[in-house]
Nucleic acid binder design. Structure first.
Lengths: 230, 230
DNA sequence: ACAAAAGTGTTAGGCCTACACCCATGA
DNA sequence: TCATGGGTGTAGGCCTAACACTTTTGT
């Protein structure tokens, strides 16, 4: 079973897809890693990912590998950079198309201990396999850039959330603090979030209002040339 | 010489790099295409690009192919998307890492007719080979997004330029018209362009002032958290 | 003489920022 | 009772956007 049946006139690289999956626990950004069970880098942590089949796109590959290795299904991944350093894999020439996705931690079934997947806070991420340290750095940069101009933060939050949670999310990603009142005003003025349920008249003072992202409203505003900004 | 000496246990795709090269003639955005001399798509226009060698990165490949096919040297290319549709090349499975670059038309030596390369205005681009129509669409989108937040427009202009030329460039890319006075004010207030030479006291009224982009100033401002916006 | 290019300033409105206090809850 | 979390409004400054006329040159 070690036959080598696929032959070419010129050497071909292998192609892999890797997934940087971000989550948010209400306080800090988390990233999903798996512990490698085989060489190279056995025992080290890495992003879910693997070799592309000849009859699938890299995005399909990313989703397939993600599900195989972590059980996460139906995640909408987006490629962000292709890493092609000549020696990035010690086995053979491998280029990888890195993807990222944002998931709601609340919807990930807890402790699927059939896999070796684990969530790490950004500040506890260990040194990673291959060039995955670099991939993570670049993924985080993309996330920061992207959240400034697109409402992707909501993908990390539950359907319904409080304004404080939303603010903490922006704080965690952008690493800056916002004035609470200004943040409220700005968010509400944008017109892309709405109150999830009317606040009961007799609500206790400390009960926060709940909001929900309105994707249709956003699409409509965007078409009119509206631009989100942070 | 049709031996197939590079054999693998699993099928491997080929990897190519393609280059979308933008220029600006003072009025419209141009893109550099080459006419294919061989099948498939013989006679059709396509982006410069070609197969990656096993000992080079995709960026190196993009630059090498660009020089081989068009004579353009020392161009700083940047990858923007990896296209991996299964049937995008009729010969075999090929994924391509698309790059783009902005060049000063004034510095490209005219009419290198040893090559089949030609500049096309955006509105005269013919139907292209492979999935290059789609690649162009996405490249143009990236260019639009990018020029809103980074001073890349200057890469398309000569070292020294007039405010009107700069405004025409923004108009050509973003397809919106700016009020001339507001454009002047905004650009000058940003602090990233400077007068190239003091306007002679006796300059005729119609002689435009010349400006130059100040990259150091921009780097300095950027470090202080300044953000460009259009 | 007429069309085209370039230079120039003001105003009003909207947005951003900074800032402080009260109430209710849970420890 | 004390610390924490949550809700709420205003004023000043800055930026943006809208807007018109004059001069000169080339045709």
């Amino acid at each position: 079973m070690s036959e080598q049946n696929f032959c070419y006139k010129y050497p071909h690289p292998s192609v892999t897809a890797d997934c940087v999956i971000f989550g948010f626990d209400g306080t800090t950004i988390k990233v999903l890693l798996i512990q490698r069970g085989i060489e190279p880098f056995k025992g080290k942590w890495a992003f879910p990912g693997g070799f592309m089949n000849i009859d699938e796109t890299v995005e399909e590959c990313a989703k397939r590998e993600l599900e195989e290795e972590t059980g996460l299904k139906n995640v909408s991944v987006e490629q962000f950079y292709t890493f092609s350093d000549v020696n990035r894999d010690p086995r053979e020439r491998v280029i990888t198309v890195a993807h990222y996705a944002l998931v709601k931690l609340s919807e990930v079934k807890g402790g699927d201990d059939a896999t070796s997947a684990r969530w790490f806070s950004m500040d506890e991420v260990p040194s990673l396999a291959f060039d995955h340290d670099r991939i993570l750095r670049i993924a985080v940069n993309r996330l920061k850039e992207r959240i400034c101009f697109e409402p992707i933060g909501f993908e990390l939050l539950p359907e319904v959330f409080t304004m404080t949670e939303l603010q903490n999310l922006y704080k965690a990603i952008l690493e800056v603090t916002f004035d609470r009142r200004n943040f409220y005003n700005k968010m509400l003025k944008l017109g892309i979030i709405e109150e999830a349920e009317p606040r009961p008249a007799n609500a206790a003072r400390r009960t926060p209002s709940k909001y929900r992202f309105n994707a249709e409203k956003y699409a409509e505003l965007k078409q009119k040339g509206f631009r989100l900004e942070f």
